[in-house]
Amino acid sequence: MTSLWTYANPKKFVETTDKVLPFVSVLAIVCLVTGLVWGFFFTPDDYRQGSTVKIIYIHVPSALMAINAWLMMLVASLIWIVRRHHVSALAARAAAPVGLVMTLIALATGAIWGQPMWGTYWAWDPRLTSFLILTLFYFGYIALWSAIENDDTAADLTSILCLVGSVFALLSRYAVNFWNQGLHQGASLSLDKEENVADVFYHPLLVSIAGFVLLFLALVLLRTRTEIRARRVRVLSTRQRME
């Protein structure tokens, strides 16, 4: 039985993902295409929201991944701080831009959906505002990574920023709730609630969520490999200059 931590070795990581990545990518595409085509063309219009409801198949998964990406960065940062595996820090770095794009997609689709439903592209609703704040956190995190030259220093600083940022993001979430009651409907999905969205919408939504999760996984793996190689190149060129 090999330990999970063997994959923290960059070489082992690259070797393993060489084999895994094609499957994940293909599966991501299959799930995305199935979920979206099913959702867009083979579900009835909502009796109240009309066909605009179909944007849910992009909006909900991307919003979900926007938050999960940050959580993944938080876990990766903790692993870096505690166990100091470089791959972990690089994975956090790799996930940030993907999470940022997911946040932007969620905001954009939300605005497009909001116009027909609420009559406005933007409202200072708690959920919308929290996402806007999350975007700012992503920007700060990415900017800090790119501002520091030494890789280990950057990994340490961004990890601590991620930790502190998570606390403040959570605080902001509650602060914003307190500050303004919103227009946004409650959670579309939850495990313990009776009134989830109707089954006809629910199943394609699950498929497209799976698609987004796999897409995220594929992108993060790909980007982590790139980061590992980029770092390898930096190290080799530093050494060449020193000899």
């Binding site: 704040i133 501002a147 220093t153 940022g165 605080l171």
Partner: peptide, 23 residues
Amino acid sequence: GIKRGGLLLSLLVLPLYVPTLIF
């Protein structure tokens, strides 16, 4: 440690100020 880090400092600190400002 960052040269001319003033702008980055604002970018990092302002989101952290949100809850304080709101309350």
